[in-house]
Amino acid sequence: MKNTQSTSWQSAALGIALGIIVLLSLNSFIIINPGQAGVISILGKATDGALLEGIHVKPPFISVVDVYDLTVQKFEVPAESSTKDLQTLSARFAINFQIDSSEVVQIRRTQGTLENIVAKIIAPQTQESFKIAAARRTVEEAITRRTELKDDFDLALSQRLDKYGIIVLDTSVVDLTFSPEFARAVEEKQIAEQRAQRAVYIAREAEQEAQAEINRAKGKAEAQRLLAETLKAQGGQLVLQKEAIEAWKTGGAQMPKVLVMGNDKTSSVPFLFNVGNIQSP
Protein backbone atom coordinates (compact mmCIF):
# COMPACT_ATOMS: atom_id res chain seq x y z
CA MET A 1 0.00 0.00 0.00
CA LYS A 2 2.80 2.36 0.98
CA ASN A 3 4.69 1.45 -2.18
CA THR A 4 1.64 2.30 -4.28
CA GLN A 5 1.24 5.73 -2.66
CA SER A 6 4.95 6.41 -3.02
CA THR A 7 4.78 5.57 -6.70
CA SER A 8 1.77 7.86 -7.15
CA TRP A 9 3.55 10.75 -5.46
CA GLN A 10 6.61 10.20 -7.59
CA SER A 11 4.54 10.19 -10.74
CA ALA A 12 2.76 13.37 -9.70
CA ALA A 13 6.04 15.05 -8.84
CA LEU A 14 7.50 13.99 -12.14
CA GLY A 15 4.48 15.36 -14.00
CA ILE A 16 4.72 18.64 -12.14
CA ALA A 17 8.42 18.88 -12.88
CA LEU A 18 7.85 18.16 -16.53
CA GLY A 19 5.10 20.77 -16.63
CA ILE A 20 7.38 23.33 -15.03
CA ILE A 21 10.11 22.51 -17.51
CA VAL A 22 7.73 22.89 -20.43
CA LEU A 23 6.38 26.15 -19.04
CA LEU A 24 9.88 27.46 -18.48
CA SER A 25 10.84 26.44 -21.99
CA LEU A 26 7.89 28.25 -23.50
CA ASN A 27 8.68 31.40 -21.55
CA SER A 28 12.40 31.30 -22.12
CA PHE A 29 12.40 31.73 -25.88
CA ILE A 30 11.03 34.31 -28.28
CA ILE A 31 10.91 34.13 -32.06
CA ILE A 32 11.29 37.36 -34.03
CA ASN A 33 9.96 37.15 -37.57
CA PRO A 34 11.50 38.90 -40.60
CA GLY A 35 10.56 42.56 -40.72
CA GLN A 36 10.29 42.78 -36.94
CA ALA A 37 12.43 43.84 -34.00
CA GLY A 38 11.94 43.11 -30.31
CA VAL A 39 12.85 44.84 -27.06
CA ILE A 40 13.20 42.83 -23.84
CA SER A 41 12.01 44.47 -20.66
CA ILE A 42 13.12 42.74 -17.42
CA LEU A 43 11.13 43.75 -14.37
CA GLY A 44 9.89 46.78 -16.27
CA LYS A 45 13.28 47.97 -17.51
CA ALA A 46 14.15 47.85 -21.21
CA THR A 47 17.46 46.19 -21.94
CA ASP A 48 19.98 47.46 -24.45
CA GLY A 49 20.13 45.90 -27.90
CA ALA A 50 17.18 45.11 -30.12
CA LEU A 51 16.23 41.52 -30.96
CA LEU A 52 16.27 41.00 -34.71
CA GLU A 53 14.78 38.11 -36.68
CA GLY A 54 15.49 34.66 -35.28
CA ILE A 55 15.07 32.82 -31.95
CA HIS A 56 16.23 34.45 -28.73
CA VAL A 57 16.47 33.45 -25.07
CA LYS A 58 14.81 35.56 -22.43
CA PRO A 59 14.37 35.28 -18.68
CA PRO A 60 11.11 33.45 -18.00
CA PHE A 61 8.21 35.04 -16.10
CA ILE A 62 10.04 38.26 -15.24
CA SER A 63 10.53 39.56 -18.79
CA VAL A 64 8.28 40.93 -21.50
CA VAL A 65 9.17 41.33 -25.18
CA ASP A 66 7.64 44.19 -27.19
CA VAL A 67 7.71 43.48 -30.90
CA TYR A 68 7.80 46.31 -33.44
CA ASP A 69 6.96 46.10 -37.14
CA LEU A 70 9.88 47.40 -39.20
CA THR A 71 8.05 47.21 -42.53
CA VAL A 72 6.56 50.26 -44.22
CA GLN A 73 3.68 51.74 -42.24
CA LYS A 74 1.04 54.04 -43.68
CA PHE A 75 -1.20 56.42 -41.79
CA GLU A 76 -3.38 59.32 -42.90
CA VAL A 77 -3.01 62.40 -40.74
CA PRO A 78 -5.12 65.59 -40.95
CA ALA A 79 -3.56 69.04 -40.67
CA GLU A 80 -4.71 72.65 -40.72
CA SER A 81 -2.83 75.93 -40.98
CA SER A 82 -3.03 79.60 -41.92
CA THR A 83 -1.35 80.74 -45.10
CA LYS A 84 0.74 83.87 -45.64
CA ASP A 85 -2.39 85.81 -46.59
CA LEU A 86 -4.15 84.58 -43.40
CA GLN A 87 -6.45 82.14 -45.17
CA THR A 88 -7.35 78.81 -43.58
CA LEU A 89 -5.96 75.81 -45.45
CA SER A 90 -6.81 72.22 -44.52
CA ALA A 91 -5.06 69.10 -45.75
CA ARG A 92 -4.88 65.40 -45.24
CA PHE A 93 -1.56 63.60 -45.68
CA ALA A 94 -0.83 59.93 -46.27
CA ILE A 95 2.54 59.25 -44.64
CA ASN A 96 4.66 56.18 -45.35
CA PHE A 97 7.34 55.60 -42.74
CA GLN A 98 9.53 52.99 -41.10
CA ILE A 99 10.93 52.58 -37.62
CA ASP A 100 14.72 52.64 -37.52
CA SER A 101 15.77 49.23 -36.15
CA SER A 102 18.75 50.78 -34.38
CA GLU A 103 16.43 53.12 -32.46
CA VAL A 104 13.85 50.56 -31.38
CA VAL A 105 15.05 50.41 -27.77
CA GLN A 106 14.97 54.19 -27.43
CA ILE A 107 11.52 54.29 -29.04
CA ARG A 108 10.35 51.71 -26.50
CA ARG A 109 11.72 53.75 -23.63
CA THR A 110 10.35 57.09 -24.77
CA GLN A 111 7.25 56.38 -26.86
CA GLY A 112 6.08 52.85 -26.20
CA THR A 113 3.72 51.30 -28.73
CA LEU A 114 3.23 52.08 -32.40
CA GLU A 115 -0.12 53.69 -31.57
CA ASN A 116 1.66 56.08 -29.24
CA ILE A 117 4.19 56.88 -31.95
CA VAL A 118 1.43 57.88 -34.36
CA ALA A 119 -0.64 59.80 -31.82
CA LYS A 120 2.15 61.51 -29.89
CA ILE A 121 4.86 61.98 -32.52
CA ILE A 122 3.73 61.68 -36.12
CA ALA A 123 0.38 63.49 -35.84
CA PRO A 124 1.64 66.63 -34.02
CA GLN A 125 4.83 66.82 -36.09
CA THR A 126 2.73 66.57 -39.26
CA GLN A 127 0.69 69.53 -38.05
CA GLU A 128 3.78 71.60 -37.31
CA SER A 129 5.44 70.72 -40.61
CA PHE A 130 2.32 71.72 -42.52
CA LYS A 131 2.26 75.06 -40.71
CA ILE A 132 5.85 75.70 -41.82
CA ALA A 133 5.08 74.87 -45.46
CA ALA A 134 1.76 76.74 -45.62
CA ALA A 135 3.04 79.92 -43.94
CA ARG A 136 5.55 80.47 -46.77
CA ARG A 137 2.92 81.04 -49.46
CA THR A 138 -0.56 82.37 -50.08
CA VAL A 139 -3.50 80.01 -50.34
CA GLU A 140 -3.57 80.52 -54.11
CA GLU A 141 0.12 79.63 -54.36
CA ALA A 142 -0.45 76.58 -52.15
CA ILE A 143 -3.08 75.32 -54.59
CA THR A 144 -1.37 76.22 -57.86
CA ARG A 145 2.10 75.16 -56.64
CA ARG A 146 1.10 72.03 -54.82
CA THR A 147 4.36 70.24 -55.56
CA GLU A 148 6.41 72.99 -53.90
CA LEU A 149 4.13 72.88 -50.87
CA LYS A 150 4.65 69.11 -50.59
CA ASP A 151 8.43 69.44 -50.95
CA ASP A 152 8.62 71.94 -48.08
CA PHE A 153 6.35 69.74 -45.99
CA ASP A 154 8.43 66.61 -46.67
CA LEU A 155 11.66 68.34 -45.70
CA ALA A 156 10.25 69.73 -42.46
CA LEU A 157 8.61 66.44 -41.46
CA SER A 158 11.70 64.34 -42.21
CA GLN A 159 13.91 66.60 -40.12
CA ARG A 160 11.47 66.50 -37.20
CA LEU A 161 10.84 62.74 -37.20
CA ASP A 162 14.43 61.69 -37.80
CA LYS A 163 15.41 62.48 -34.20
CA TYR A 164 12.69 60.11 -32.99
CA GLY A 165 14.02 57.17 -35.00
CA ILE A 166 11.23 57.42 -37.59
CA ILE A 167 12.24 57.35 -41.26
CA VAL A 168 9.83 59.13 -43.64
CA LEU A 169 9.76 57.31 -46.97
CA ASP A 170 7.06 59.23 -48.81
CA THR A 171 4.08 61.51 -48.30
CA SER A 172 1.02 62.22 -50.40
CA VAL A 173 -1.47 65.06 -50.24
CA VAL A 174 -4.75 63.18 -50.11
CA ASP A 175 -6.92 66.27 -49.81
CA LEU A 176 -6.34 70.02 -49.85
CA THR A 177 -9.26 72.34 -49.11
CA PHE A 178 -9.72 76.02 -48.39
CA SER A 179 -12.42 78.13 -46.78
CA PRO A 180 -15.76 78.86 -48.53
CA GLU A 181 -14.93 82.58 -48.40
CA PHE A 182 -11.81 82.02 -50.46
CA ALA A 183 -13.74 79.82 -52.89
CA ARG A 184 -16.14 82.70 -53.53
CA ALA A 185 -13.25 85.12 -53.89
CA VAL A 186 -11.63 82.83 -56.48
CA GLU A 187 -14.86 82.61 -58.43
CA GLU A 188 -15.31 86.39 -58.39
CA LYS A 189 -11.71 86.89 -59.46
CA GLN A 190 -12.15 84.49 -62.37
CA ILE A 191 -15.27 86.34 -63.49
CA ALA A 192 -13.47 89.70 -63.25
CA GLU A 193 -10.50 88.34 -65.21
CA GLN A 194 -12.81 87.03 -67.93
CA ARG A 195 -14.51 90.42 -68.17
CA ALA A 196 -11.16 92.18 -68.32
CA GLN A 197 -9.95 89.83 -71.04
CA ARG A 198 -13.16 90.49 -72.98
CA ALA A 199 -12.65 94.25 -72.64
CA VAL A 200 -9.06 93.95 -73.85
CA TYR A 201 -10.23 91.88 -76.82
CA ILE A 202 -12.86 94.48 -77.74
CA ALA A 203 -10.32 97.29 -77.41
CA ARG A 204 -7.84 95.47 -79.61
CA GLU A 205 -10.55 94.73 -82.15
CA ALA A 206 -11.52 98.42 -82.27
CA GLU A 207 -7.87 99.41 -82.57
CA GLN A 208 -7.38 96.98 -85.45
CA GLU A 209 -10.51 98.28 -87.17
CA ALA A 210 -9.34 101.88 -86.77
CA GLN A 211 -5.95 100.95 -88.18
CA ALA A 212 -7.67 99.24 -91.09
CA GLU A 213 -9.65 102.44 -91.80
CA ILE A 214 -6.43 104.43 -91.70
CA ASN A 215 -4.82 101.99 -94.11
CA ARG A 216 -7.80 102.15 -96.44
CA ALA A 217 -7.72 105.96 -96.34
CA LYS A 218 -4.00 105.97 -97.08
CA GLY A 219 -4.55 103.53 -99.92
CA LYS A 220 -7.32 105.65 -101.39
CA ALA A 221 -5.19 108.80 -101.13
CA GLU A 222 -2.28 107.04 -102.79
CA ALA A 223 -4.58 105.84 -105.58
CA GLN A 224 -5.84 109.38 -106.14
CA ARG A 225 -2.29 110.68 -106.23
CA LEU A 226 -1.31 108.09 -108.81
CA LEU A 227 -4.42 108.90 -110.82
CA ALA A 228 -3.57 112.58 -110.80
CA GLU A 229 -0.05 111.85 -112.02
CA THR A 230 -1.47 109.63 -114.75
CA LEU A 231 -3.82 112.37 -115.94
CA LYS A 232 -0.89 114.73 -116.25
CA ALA A 233 0.92 112.26 -118.45
CA GLN A 234 0.24 111.81 -122.14
CA GLY A 235 -2.89 109.81 -122.78
CA GLY A 236 -4.56 110.92 -119.59
CA GLN A 237 -7.80 111.61 -121.46
CA LEU A 238 -8.18 107.88 -122.03
CA VAL A 239 -8.23 107.36 -118.30
CA LEU A 240 -10.95 109.97 -117.91
CA GLN A 241 -12.99 108.30 -120.60
CA LYS A 242 -12.62 104.94 -118.86
CA GLU A 243 -13.61 106.49 -115.52
CA ALA A 244 -16.72 108.04 -117.06
CA ILE A 245 -17.81 104.73 -118.56
CA GLU A 246 -17.19 102.89 -115.29
CA ALA A 247 -19.23 105.52 -113.42
CA TRP A 248 -22.23 104.86 -115.67
CA LYS A 249 -21.89 101.14 -115.16
CA THR A 250 -21.63 101.23 -111.40
CA GLY A 251 -24.37 103.83 -111.13
CA GLY A 252 -26.88 101.50 -112.66
CA ALA A 253 -27.71 103.80 -115.59
CA GLN A 254 -28.28 102.50 -119.10
CA MET A 255 -25.41 102.88 -121.47
CA PRO A 256 -26.12 105.65 -123.99
CA LYS A 257 -27.12 104.54 -127.43
CA VAL A 258 -25.19 107.39 -129.05
CA LEU A 259 -21.60 108.33 -128.32
CA VAL A 260 -20.54 111.70 -129.66
CA MET A 261 -16.90 112.60 -129.59
CA GLY A 262 -15.64 116.12 -130.03
CA ASN A 263 -13.71 117.07 -133.10
CA ASP A 264 -10.75 117.92 -130.93
CA LYS A 265 -8.80 114.74 -130.38
CA THR A 266 -7.43 116.15 -127.18
CA SER A 267 -10.86 116.27 -125.60
CA SER A 268 -10.51 114.45 -122.31
CA VAL A 269 -14.12 113.41 -121.62
CA PRO A 270 -16.52 112.00 -124.20
CA PHE A 271 -19.87 113.69 -124.61
CA LEU A 272 -22.46 110.94 -124.10
CA PHE A 273 -26.23 111.06 -124.22
CA ASN A 274 -29.18 108.71 -124.63
CA VAL A 275 -31.19 109.40 -127.73
CA GLY A 276 -34.25 108.14 -125.89
CA ASN A 277 -34.21 111.31 -123.83
CA ILE A 278 -34.52 113.53 -126.96
CA GLN A 279 -38.09 114.83 -127.34
CA SER A 280 -39.55 115.34 -130.80
CA PRO A 281 -40.67 118.95 -131.63
Results as ranks from 00 to 15, higher is better:
residue 16 I to C: 11
residue 258 V to K: 14
residue 226 L to K: 15
residue 164 Y to C: 01
residue 224 Q to S: 05
residue 20 I to Y: 10
residue 4 T to R: 13
residue 118 V to W: 01
residue 227 L to I: 15
residue 224 Q to Y: 13
residue 250 T to V: 13
residue 198 R to M: 12
residue 199 A to W: 04
residue 256 P to L: 02
residue 115 E to F: 03
residue 14 L to P: 00
residue 262 G to Q: 08
residue 100 D to S: 15
residue 115 E to D: 15
residue 196 A to P: 00
residue 257 K to A: 11
residue 175 D to Q: 12
residue 154 D to G: 02
residue 133 A to S: 10
residue 165 G to D: 05
residue 69 D to Q: 10
residue 245 I to W: 12
residue 18 L to N: 10
residue 256 P to I: 00
residue 269 V to D: 06
residue 75 F to H: 14
residue 197 Q to Y: 01
residue 1 M to Q: 11
residue 150 K to D: 03
residue 256 P to N: 02
residue 64 V to W: 03
residue 83 T to D: 11
residue 190 Q to V: 06
residue 184 R to S: 13
residue 145 R to T: 05
residue 183 A to H: 12
residue 249 K to P: 01
residue 197 Q to D: 01
residue 257 K to P: 02
residue 72 V to W: 01
residue 260 V to E: 11
residue 29 F to S: 15
residue 105 V to G: 00
residue 153 F to A: 00
residue 49 G to Y: 04
residue 105 V to L: 00
residue 87 Q to A: 05
residue 271 F to G: 01
residue 18 L to W: 07
residue 191 I to M: 05
residue 58 K to W: 06
residue 85 D to P: 04
residue 28 S to I: 08
residue 187 E to I: 10
residue 125 Q to N: 05
residue 182 F to W: 14
residue 81 S to A: 15
residue 225 R to C: 03
residue 199 A to L: 14
